[in-house]
Design a protein around this nucleic acid. Structure first.
Length: 885
DNA sequence: CATATGCATGGGC
DNA sequence: GGCCCATGCATAT
C-alpha cells in the first residue's frame, strides 16, 4: 500500500475520518477496504489500530459496543475496523477474538473469520430469504420449500459448537441466533429477521457516520477475500441492491416437510457467484454449516437418522462464475442463487439418465419428497429451456439416495459429460430451479458438440479450470468475470485414454504410474508446470523450435497469464491469493502455487494487497480471453508448423505425461471437488478419466490454447532434451559420428524395461514393438526415451494399455510421427540422413519390423533389441515403469 | 436381447 | 462404524 494511489491512498489525509492528520509519510496500513486496499492512516491512528484501540479511540461513542461473553471485554462490533475483533456466538452475544480463539472448537474455524459474516452481499441474502418455493413440474406448481431442517434439528445443543457461528448475525439484537446458515425456519421469518437486521443496520446499531458507512460497505463486500474487481460487476449483474452493506449469510430454509427428511444445511449461504464469494461460501459452509450447522437450532426435529452432518461437501459448493450466472440469468433482473454443483460421474453422464444428487444438496435445495417416486421437477437450463426431471430417491441402507431421472436429454443438450460440472441454482424471483453447467475444460463450440455427441473423452480436466488460465480465470476464484460463455472457447481435447478402465474396474485405484499421469489435466499441467525453482528452463532452439528444458523435475507453479505489455515487453499477470488482484510480473518469473502480493518483489509498489491493481476489470477481461491464444506465446517456434501440427495431435498424450501429482498441488481453493475421492480435479478415476463413450473431441492441431501450447512446449522440451542426450551419448559412444547412420545403439540402451534408464543414457526406445499394439508401443517408445529425463513423463505405455482403442492411440501415433520426423531430421542433420527416416514411420500396424525407432539414434539399436527379438514385446510391455530412462 | 428400474454393494471418507 | 454415493447387478419390461 505504500505509495500506491488508490482510493485509500489518494488522499494525504489519514483515512480515519475522525482524524485530520496527514498520513504517515510511510503509509501505515489500517483495515482492509472494500477495494482490497488498506486504509492508510496517520501514525497515530495506525498505532491505535495496531494496538486494537482504534475503536476505543474513535468509535467510543458509536453504537455497536458489545461485551465479550467470555472475558467481558468490550468490543466494538459496528465497524469494519473491528470486524475481525470478535466472533458472533451461536447463542447470541459475541466473543472477542482472543476468547474465540481459545474456544474454537471447530477445526474449520480457522478458515473463516467473523468477517465472513459480512461478506456476502446483503441484498443477495435478503433475496434469499424471500425465496419462494420451487417450481415443480407441471401442474404441481410452486411447492413450499422445505425447511432445511433436520440437519439442524439435532437435539443436541452442543454448546461448544455454538460457540462460534460464523453466520450468526446478532448485533445485540434479538436476532441472536440468527444463524446465517439455517436459522430461519420459515421464509417469512427469515425475511423478517433479515429485514429486522437490515433495519438495525440502518438504524441503531449500525448507524455510523459517513465513514462508517464506508466501512460498512467494506465490511459487506470486502472483508477478507473479496477484492475482486469483478465483484462490483458481479453484483450489478445480479442486480444487487444498491447498498449491500452487510451480507447476511442467512439461508433460507423452508419448513421441513413431513417426510422426515432432513434438510441439509439448507441453502445456507448463498455465495455470490463470484470467486470471492465462492470462497466465502465455502467458508460459510464449513463453518456454519458443517460445523455448527447441526447444532443449530432449527425447527426442531432431530434427524431421524441421527446424522449430524449436513455439511455440503466442498465438492458441491457452488463455484459459479459470473459467466455462469450471467449465462443463467441472462439479462433479466433475476437474481441467481447458486445452490450446489456436482461433477458428473460416469454414471450420471451415462445413458441411464440418472443423475445422482448429493443427498445433502438434494435435501437442502430440492423439494422434500417422502415417496421414493418423488416428484417431477422442472428445471430450466441456462438457455431458458425447461426440462422436467423426476426427482426421487432410492432407499439405500437406512438412508436415501437421491437421483434426478431423465436427465439424459438435458445432459446431452448441454453437451456435458462425465467430469463436467452441472450446477444448480435458484432463480429469483420465481424460485425457479436453474441448471447450468461448466465444462471441465472449456471447449470450442464445435468441440463441445463433438464431445456431447461422442461423449468422447471424459473430461480429464476435472477441475481443470483451475489450471487452465482460460478456464481458470473464469473460476470464481479468480474473481474475474469472463465474458465467454461457458464452454466457450478452448477446445481442449479430453480424451480419455482409458476408456476401458472404467467399466470394469470400479473405482480404479491409481496405483500405477500410468494412472497417476492422468491425474492432472492438461490445463493443470500446462498452467502449473514450471521449471523448478532456481532452475530456469534452458531454452534451446532446434529447428526453429524453442525447447525448454528443465534440468530437474518441473514443479507446479501458479498459473499466470502471459501477455505483452504496451511496450512490447513480455510479461505475465499473476493473481494474488489473498486479494485476488492481478499483478504484473516479468514473464520469466516462476511463482509458487500460492503467491501473494507480498511476494511481489518485482514491483515494490504493488507488493501489498492494498496496492491498486494495474489492470482494470475490463482489461482483465480482455486479457483473460486471450489466455488461450496467449498461450501461443510460449510457442515460439513458428517453423514447421505443419510438422508440428502432426505432432500436436500427439501432444495430448504428452500432456498426460506432463502430469505430476494430484490436484493437491493445485491451488487449494481451486479444487472443485475437494477431497472427493473420485472426482478430484485431475482424478483419474473412472468418472474423471473415462468418458462415457470413451471418445472425445480433440483439439485442433492448430489449437493454441494454453493446454495445447503447453503440451507443445513440453513436447519440444522433451524432444530437445532427448536430442541433447542423444547427441551426448553419441559423442560418447562413438567419436565417429559417421556411424550415426546406424548409431550403435548404445549398448546400454536396453535398460531393463522396468528400471528407468538414467537420464544420462538417453535410451531411446529402441524398439517399439509393433505387434498389434504397436501404436501404443510406438508412441511409448518414442516417448519413453524422455522419461527419465523429465519427471513429467509418465509412462505412455500405460495409456495405451489403458485405452488401446481410444483416441489416445491415434494421438500417440501422431505424436510418434511427429517425433519420428523430428528425429529423422535430427538424424539427418547429424548423420546425414539415413534409413532412420523410415523408422520414423509410425505406422501402427507396421509390419513385423515395426520397430520404431523413436530416436534416430537408436534406430540401430532397436533392431538389436536385447531381449526382444520381437519388436513387439519390446520394452513397453514388460516394463510398466518406463524402461527408458 | 436390449433397456429400464430399483436395490445392493462396497470403497472412501 | 456410519454415511455417502458411484457403480453393479438382478429383475422387470
Amino acid at each position: 500500500m505504500t505509495s500506491t494511489p488508490g482510493a485509500a491512498s489518494s488522499s494525504k489525509i489519514c483515512f480515519n475520518s475522525d482524524c485530520k492528520d496527514l498520513k504517515s509519510e510511510i503509509p501505515r496500513k489500517g483495515w482492509r477496504l472494500r477495494t482490497g486496499e488498506f486504509a492508510e492512516l496517520c501514525d497515530r491512528c495506525a498505532f491505535a489500530f495496531e494496538e486494537g484501540r482504534f475503536c476505543d479511540t474513535f468509535h467510543l461513542n458509536a453504537s455497536g459496543w458489545r461485551t465479550c461473553e467470555s472475558c467481558g471485554k468490550r468490543v466494538h462490533c459496528g465497524c469494519i475496523v473491528s470486524v475481525h475483533a470478535f466472533t458472533l456466538l451461536d447463542a447470541g452475544g459475541i466473543e472477542c477474538v482472543a476468547c474465540a480463539r481459545k474456544n474454537v472448537v471447530m477445526g474449520s474455524s480457522s478458515s473463516w473469520s467473523p468477517s465472513l459474516i459480512f461478506h456476502s452481499s446483503l441484498s443477495e441474502r435478503f433475496k434469499e430469504y424471500s425465496a419462494k418455493g420451487w417450481t415443480q413440474l407441471a401442474g404441481s406448481g410452486p411447492v413450499p420449500w422445505r425447511q432445511a431442517p433436520s440437519l439442524f434439528n439435532s437435539p443436541v445443543t452442543q454448546p461448544e459448537l455454538h460457540s462460534r457461528v460464523p453466520y450468526e448475525v446478532d448485533l445485540s439484537t434479538g436476532i441472536d441466533r440468527l444463524n446465517v446458515c439455517d436459522r430461519l425456519s420459515t421464509p417469512s421469518l427469515e425475511k423478517k429477521k433479515v429485514e429486522d437486521f437490515s433495519e438495525r443496520l440502518m438504524n441503531g446499531t449500525w448507524k455510523p457516520g459517513t465513514r462508517d458507512i464506508h466501512e460498512k460497505g467494506n465490511a459487506g463486500i470486502n472483508c477478507e477475500e473479496q477484492h475482486n474487481p469483478c465483484l462490483t460487476k458481479f453484483q450489478s449483474s445480479l442486480k444487487e441492491e444498491p447498498n449491500p452493506q452487510f451480507g447476511l449469510a442467512v439461508s433460507y430454509t423452508s419448513p421441513d416437510e413431513a417426510n422426515g427428511q432432513n434438510g441439509v444445511s439448507g441453502t445456507h449461504l448463498r455465495p455470490n457467484p463470484q470467486p470471492p464469494l465462492a470462497k466465502q461460501f465455502h467458508s460459510n459452509l464449513q463453518n456454519g454449516t458443517d460445523s455448527s450447522g447441526e447444532t443449530q437450532i432449527r425447527n426442531g426435529r432431530p434427524r431421524p437418522d441421527g446424522r449430524g452432518k449436513n455439511n455440503l461437501f466442498p465438492r458441491y459448493w457452488p463455484r459459479f462464475t459470473d459467466q455462469d450466472l450471467q449465462q443463467i440469468t441472462g439479462d433479466s433482473n433475476s437474481v441467481i442463487t447458486p445452490l450446489f454443483e456436482k461433477m458428473l460421474s460416469a454414471s450420471d453422464a451415462g445413458r441411464i439418465g440418472r443423475l445422482v444428487l448429493p443427498k445433502k444438496c438434494a435435501e437442502a435445495h430440492f423439494p422434500p419428497i417422502s415417496q421414493p417416486e418423488g416428484l417431477p421437477l422442472k428445471v430450466q437450463d441456462s438457455k431458458g429451456k425447461e426440462w422436467i426431471f423426476q426427482f426421487r430417491f432410492w432407499p439405500n441402507n437406512n438412508s436415501r439416495m437421491y437421483v434426478l431421472e431423465g436427465v439424459t436429454p438435458c445432459i446431452q443438450n448441454m453437451q456435458v459429460q462425465a467430469g463436467d460440472v452441472v450446477t444448480f441454482s435458484r432463480l429469483e424471483p420465481g424460485g425457479k430451479l436453474v441448471m447450468g453447467f461448466r465444462k471441465a475444460s472449456t471447449a470450442s463450440a464445435s468441440d463441445q458438440d463433438n464431445e456431447a455427441k461422442n461423449s468422447n473423452g471424459l473430461s480429464m480436466h476435472g477441475d481443470a479450470e483451475m489450471a487452465d488460465p482460460t478456464s481458470w480465470s473464469k473460476v470464481d476464484k479468480s474473481g474475474y468475470i469472463a465474458k465467454e460463455a461457458l464452454g466457450a472457447k478452448v477446445a481442449v481435447s479430453r480424451k480419455r485414454k482409458n476408456s476401458m478402465l472404467g467399466s470394469k474396474s470400479k473405482r480404479l485405484r491409481i496405483d500405477n504410474e500410468d494412472l497417476i499421469e492422468l491425474k492432472l489435466t492438461w490445463e493443470e499441467a500446462q498452467g502449473l508446470l514450471r521449471p523448478p525453482a532456481n532452475h530456469v528452463a534452458s531454452v534451446v532452439v532446434i529447428e526453429g523450435f524453442e525447447f525448454e528444458e528443465y534440468e530437474d523435475a518441473p514443479i507446479l507453479g501458479k498459473p499466470t497469464i502471459f501477455a505483452t505489455d504496451n511496450m512490447g515487453e513480455k510479461i505475465q499477470w499473476a493473481q494474488c491469493e489473498d486479494c485476488f488482484k492481478w499483478r504484473r510480473l516479468p514473464s520469466n518469473v516462476l511463482l509458487p502455487s500460492k503467491w501473494t502480493c507480498s511476494s511481489n518483489s518485482w514491483d515494490p509498489e504493488r507488493s501489498s494487497c492494498s496496492a491498486i491493481q494495474e489492470l482494470t476489470a475490463e482489461q482483465l477481461e480482455n486479457l483473460l480471453p486471450q489466455c488461450n491464444p496467449a498461450a501461443s506465446k510460449k510457442m515460439k517456434a513458428a517453423k514447421q508448423e505443419t510438422e508440428n501440427v502432426d505432432a500436436l495431435e500427439g501432444l495430448d498424450t504428452l500432456a498426460n505425461l506432463a502430469i505430476l501429482g494430484e490436484g493437491e498441488s493445485l491451488p487449494t481453493s481451486s479444487q472443485a471437488t475437494t477431497k472427493h475421492p473420485r472426482h478430484r480435479p485431475g482424478c483419474s478415476c473412472i468418472v474423471c478419466i473415462q468418458p462415457p463413450s470413451g471418445k472425445g473431441p480433440k483439439h485442433k492441431q492448430t489449437c493454441t490454447c494454453n493446454v495445447c501450447e503447453t503440451v507443445k512446449r513440453r513436447f519440444r522440451t522433451l524432444m530437445m532434451r532427448r536430442e541433447k542426450k542423444q547427441s551426448q551419448k553419441e559423442a560418447e559412444t562413438t567419436s565417429k559420428k559417421q556411424q550415426t547412420s546406424l548409431p550403435d545403439k548404445v549398448p546400454d540402451d536396453d535398460p531393463p524395461p522396468c528400471t528407468n534408464a538414467e537420464n544420462s543414457s538417453p535410451k531411446p526406445i529402441k524398439i517399439a514393438s509393433e505387434g498389434s499394439e504397436d501404436d501404443p508401443n510406438r508412441v511409448k517408445s518414442s516417448i519413453l526415451p524422455f522419461k527419465g529425463q523429465i519427471d513429467l513423463n509418465i509412462q505412455p505405455e500405460r495409456e495405451e494399455e489403458l485405452s488401446p482403442g481410444s483416441d489416445s492411440g491415434s494421438m500417440m501415433r501422431l505424436l510418434q510421427d511427429a517425433t519420428d520426423k523430428h528425429l529423422r531430421q535430427q538424424s539427418t542433420l547429424t548423420s546425414g540422413g539415413n534409413s532412420n527416416s523410415e523408422v520414423s514411420q509410425t505406422q501402427p500396424g507396421g509390419g513385423p519390423e515395426g520397430e520404431k525407432i523413436s530416436n534416430s539414434v537408436n534406430l540401430g539399436a532397436s533392431h538389436q533389441d536385447i531381449d526382444r527379438d520381437h519388436p513387439v514385446f519390446s520394452i513397453k510391455t514388460s516394463a510398466p515403469t518406463s524402461a527408458t530412462g
